[in-house]
Write a protein that binds this DNA or RNA. Structure first.
Length: 590
RNA sequence: GCGCCCAUAGCUCAGGGGAUAGAGCAGCUGCCUUCUAAGCAGUUGGUCGCAGGUUCGAUUCCUGCUGGGCGCGCCA
């Protein structure tokens, strides 16, 4: 709607602008919301911008522009307000018609025009032999929302779960896990049944403790890493077991969270093991490599270290092994050549910003990102850390952090207590389903609603809140609409009436609904899910207010009832779709 | 030392060159014989960290400072 108005107004004012000697592109027209809805539906500050170049009073220009817009059909009211605003009120038919056009589209006008891009989306990136704790939530759910939004816009998304499955920590676990596994096999048991990731974590902690005090142990672990990476069959078999054991627990969490990653998306560090030597060779071929202190490095002038000297990107360690720089470089090549990516998005915490900036620069340096006349975009989508009560980021492997499964269990338990109290007549299995949707939704939303760049201190009550600006508030609005349909015996798919927009609350709701597509566009452009949360909260607020003031089933006339039902239908579909983009369920009853 | 991010109401956060800076929580007042009160309506609460600069206009952009977080050679 906003975009259509911009073009319409730009067209109308072309002649006027030319008179002032100014070109007027539609995008340059800023249409904002007036501070008070009573002033109008849209506000334009163009007169103040023109006043500068025209060297005339803004208010006079506003008056002239208002006169030019006054006879446009879609405007019911065009008013000038000091110091130089023009407030526009749309005709009811225009609002209603625009909303009807959106609802007529199965995708609510989210799909973009043009050829889809292939977007490789790297997120979650869980570590093997480590339980997911609250710090792992962010990459997983922010990445998931980005994937859903890109797909809704029509892009082809290839998800990649870059597992931490081939580094030193794995060697630590393998070192101590061998005996445990032999023991289990001797008893004829299946390790996948009897071992848990918590066990692996304990093994890891024991190993790190041993390595700390014993230099021989450290050597042993490094030897194991080399043997694993050179294909020792026994170690590989154990590694496989540990990986599957870890991932089976990860998938339980993904399922709880409604995260769309599957085994097909698993492309961990180990996947690139046979491409590492080739990657280094390719760097040599492009003349980027230098040896320094026994390690093979790429030095980039733009990155300086503490001493002010250029910082190396180490791609092969002095012991001949590879590190995560090499894995990421190999992954870039694979994603561009093997997966035909037009764009690669990394959803990783902000602390890795330097790492990715370096790795991207190396890829550019060697021309890997050039394809024909196009350049493949490599983007790091950063996010802040989850901090402990001391204000420090949660340590990755400390083991004292709140486990994700515990957080989700608690969330569902608290939600169940509320469902049980508010809606005791609901069948038991439905109560459980609602509790899951509400509890998990609350956790995801509490993270997503905040700008991703900010750190936050982990807090149970904040993450599990069920009132105020939370997922349950949005779900509640949705459930209330469904309840109207249920009580009224309404076949919602058969609604074809135009929505009603005469009451201020109806109008506010309708106008909010008109903005859905542009918000999703914005979320896509900036890769910032919290903008969608903000919008959906405002939408739910507009609905709740409408719900309070405008009876639907007992509306004064049958025509009004039908038109309000149409408005409800639009709100319900938009809320459901918006929640779906956030990966949050929208129960029809709660 | 260099680099990145951050500072807005008691708390948690939106906003981002333009009209009286907005929500949630907490506090106070009303509203359930009428579509789910997980709600609605109202109200209290702010020198937008400090100092300069650009601009008709700065909380928003620029510079400096203060205070926090993070990163900076063989962990990932």
């Amino acid at each position: 709607m906003r975009e259509r108005l911009q073009h319409l107004i730009a067209e109308r004012l072309t002649g006027y602008a030319e008179g002032l000697g100014i070109a007027l592109p539609a995008e340059q027209l800023e249409l904002s919301e007036p501070p008070d809805p009573a002033m109008g539906d849209f506000a334009m500050n163009l007169p103040m911008k023109l006043a500068r170049v025209a060297r005339r009073a803004p208010i006079a220009i506003a008056g002239e522009i208002a006169d030019l817009l006054r006879d446009v059909d879609v405007f019911a009211k065009v008013e000038v307000a000091p110091p130089g605003y023009i407030n526009l009120t749309l005709a009811d038919y225009a609002v209603s018609g625009a909303l009807q056009a959106i609802v007529a589209d199965a995708n609510l006008k989210l799909m973009k025009e043009g050829v889809p891009q292939t977007v490789v989306l790297d997120y979650s990136g869980v570590n093997i032999a480590k339980q997911m704790h609250v710090g792992h939530l962010r990459s997983t759910i922010i990445g998931d929302v980005i994937g859903r939004v890109l797909e809704a816009r029509g892009e082809r998304v290839i998800r990649q779960n870059h597992l931490g499955d081939w580094g030193l920590p794995i060697a630590m676990v393998l070192w101590k896990a061998g005996l445990v596994l032999r023991d289990i096999e001797a008893r004829g048991d299946d390790p996948l049944q009897v071992l848990t990731v918590a066990d692996l974590e304990q093994i890891y902690r024991d190993a790190t403790a041993a390595v700390k005090v014993d230099p021989n142990a450290s050597e042993e672990v490094h030897r194991i890493l080399v043997e694993l990476q050179s294909g020792d069959p026994r170690l590989l078999a154990d590694w496989q077991t540990i990986t599957r054991l870890s991932m089976q627990e990860v998938y339980r969490v993904y399922t709880d969270l409604g995260v769309q990653l599957t085994m097909e998306d698993e492309r961990g560090e180990s996947f690139y093991r046979d491409q590492l030597a080739g990657t280094v060779a390719s760097l040599t071929a492009c003349g980027a490599l230098t040896e320094s202190q026994g390690a093979m490095c790429v030095f980039l002038e733009q990155f300086k270290g503490k001493d002010g000297q250029p910082l190396p990107v180490i791609v092969q360690k002095s012991d001949g092994g590879y590190n995560y720089e090499t894995f990421d470089l190999a992954a870039i090549r694979f994603r561009i050549e093997g997966l035909s990516a037009d764009r690669v998005i990394y959803v990783t915490d902000a602390r890795q910003a330097l790492h990715f900036a370096q790795v991207f620069a190396v890829a550019d340096l060697c021309g890997w990102t050039v394809r024909g006349s196009e350049r493949v975009a490599l983007e790091h989508v950063t996010f802040g850390s989850v901090l402990g009560e001391d204000g420090k980021p949660l340590k990755t492997r400390s083991g004292e952090n709140v486990k994700l499964v515990d957080l989700l269990d608690e969330a569902v338990a608290r939600a169940y207590a509320v469902v049980n109290e508010k809606n005791p007549d609901l069948p038991e299995d439905q109560k459980r389903a609602v509790a899951r949707a509400v509890g998990i939704g609350a956790v995801k939303y509490s993270d997503l609603r905040q700008d991703r760049n900010n750190d936050y201190v982990f807090d149970w009550d904040r993450m599990l809140a069920l009132v105020g600006n939370t997922a349950p508030y949005l779900q509640y609005a949705h459930a209330r609409i469904c309840s109207i349909f249920r009580k009224g015996g309404v076949e919602e798919d058969t609604i074809t009436t135009a929505p009603e927009v005469s009451h201020p609350a109806e109008r506010a709701l309708a106008l909010k609904l008109l903005a859905f597509a542009e918000v999703v566009e914005d979320v896509e452009a900036e890769l910032r899910p919290h903008a969608l949360c903000t919008y959906l909260y405002e939408l739910a607020t507009a609905f709740s207010s409408f719900y309070d003031q405008c009876p639907v089933l007992t509306a004064e006339t049958e025509a009004s009832k039908q038109a309000r039902l149409a408005l409800c239908r639009a709100a319900q579909r938009t809320l459901a779709r918006g929640l779906d983009l956030l990966g949050i369920e929208a129960p029809r009853e709660m």
